[in-house]
Amino acid sequence: MDPLILGFAVVNGLLIGGIYGGVALGLSLIFGVLRVVNFAHGSLLMVGLYTAYWLQALAGIDPYASVIFTVPLLFCMGYFIQRVIIAPLIWRESALVVEPLSALLLTAGVYLVIDNLALMAFGPDVRSASTSLDMPPIMLGPIPVNMQRFIGFSAAILAAIGLVVWLRQTRMGRAIRATAQNRDAAALSGIDVPMIYAVTFGVGTALLGLFGSLLATFIPITPNVGLSFGIRSFIVVVLGGIGSIPGSILGGLVIGVFEAIASQFVPATSAAILSLGLFILILLVRPGGLMGKL
C-alpha cells in the first residue's frame, strides 16, 4: 500500500479516534462511579450540538465561544437527570446484589424522550453551524490536518488529562474516587454520596456540552445524531476499559485508526462489522479492556 495513503489514514484515524474517545469520556466516568450504563449519552451530545447551533443562529455566538454556555447547561441537565430520575432507582436497588440493569432501561427511556422532544421542537431538518474563524489546514509533512478536527482531538486529550488531575488532586475528585471504590464506606466516612453521584453525572454530561460546541462546526446536526455516537461510544469505552479515563482515549484512538486502516481494504460497511467483532472479542478475551479500572 502507498505509504502516503497509509500516513493519511493513520492521521485521520487518530484525529477522529481522539474525538470518539473524548465523547466517550463521560460515559466511562459515569459507569466507573455509578455503575450506570447511560443509554442517553448520545442524546445529550445532541443537546450540546443543538445548543451550539441555536446560540449561533439566534445570538450569533461562534460555536467555539458557546462552550461557556453549553458546558454549564449540560452539567445542569446531567445533575438533574441523576437527581430526579436515576437516584431513586439506585437507592431502591442498593440492597440488591445485581448490577442495576434497570438503570440502563431508565436511561433508554430518557433517550427516547430527549430525542423525540428535539424532533418536536426543532423539526427533522439537518442543521450545521460554522465558525467564523479562518482555519486553514496545518501541514504535517505532505499531509494536511483539518484544524476543526485537530481542535476536537486536542480538547479530548486535554479534557482527559484535566479529569485525571481533578480526580487525583481535588477534594471532590478524591471523594468521587472513594465513592467509586466503595459506596457504603464512602457514605460512612461522611461523603455525601447522592451529591457525589449527581456531580459525577453532571461532569460526565458537561463534557458532552464541550464536545457539542467543538463538533458543531463539522458534524451534521439532526435530532437523532446521538445514535451515530451512541453505540460507538460503548465500543470505545469497553475497549479502553470501563471506568478508565486514559482507557477511553486509548480505546478511541485504537478504534479510529483501526477503522481508518480497515476502510482502505474493505468497504465501510464491512469495517463496521469488524469493529463490532473487535468489541465482542475484547469483552470475551479481556473484559477489563486495554487499561485497568479507575
Binding site: 493519511f8 485521520n12 484525529l15 477522529i16 437523532n224 455516537f229 481508518a260 482502505q264 465501510a268 460497511t269
Partner: peptide
C-alpha cells in the same frame, strides 16, 4: 464501488479511497 452505513461522522477514509 463503495457503500457506507448511514449516519457517519467522518468520511476521511472513504475520500482517500476515492482519491486513490
Amino acid at each position: 464501488d463503495e457503500a457506507a452505513p448511514p449516519n457517519q461522522v467522518d468520511f476521511s477514509s472513504q475520500l482517500l479511497k476515492i482519491r486513490a
